[in-house]
């Protein structure tokens, strides 16, 4: 069974992502875990070895870049795909994200369909 970890300090965004992912429940068997800050998020990722991580950038304890860098430094997490949630047009954010090994970027405010399509692609591959 796939694990999906959602790391975002905004409770509503976590709920939105969780509910959005329900769309895929019939296609894939997966379990969703959430974390409200970067530190808890990294711990969850290292414990659960998820297939997919939704990662916010600005968060308490540990920001998204540092979480992703830590994930990429762990070779046992090579299969984990990281989707970063960024603000639109922040080219520097994107470059920084790319440099720490982010796989995909989704800009806020995002379209739930975008999330579904991307998650389907990742879980299906």
């Amino acid at each position: 069974m796939f694990k999906v970890v959602i790391v975002d300090d905004e409770v509503h965004i976590r709920a939105l992502l969780e509910q959005t992912m329900e769309e895929l429940e019939e296609e894939f068997e997966f379990e969703i875990l959430t974390a409200a800050n970067g530190g808890d998020g990294l711990a969850a990722i290292q414990r659960e070895h998820p297939r997919l991580v939704f990662l916010d950038v600005m968060m308490p304890v540990m920001n998204g870049y540092d979480v992703c860098a830590a994930v990429r430094a762990d070779s046992s997490l090579d299969e984990t795909k990281v989707v970063m949630l960024t603000a639109k047009g922040q080219e520097t954010d994107r470059q920084r994200g790319m440099s720490v090994g982010v796989n995909h970027f989704i800009t806020k405010p995002f379209d739930p369909d975008e999330i579904v399509n991307l998650a389907r692609e990742i879980l299906g591959s």
């Binding site: 905004e10 509503h12 965004i13 939105l16 509910q19 959005t20 603000a87 639109k88 806020k108 405010p109 995002f110 379209d111 739930p112 369909d113």
Partner: peptide, 18 residues
């Protein structure tokens, strides 16, 4: 501000669609 506005907007838009 525009960055901060995105978060609630994401919720509004996303949940409306759901």
């Amino acid at each position: 501000v525009s960055h901060e506005l995105r978060t609630p907007l994401t919720s509004i838009r996303g949940f409306a669609q759901l």
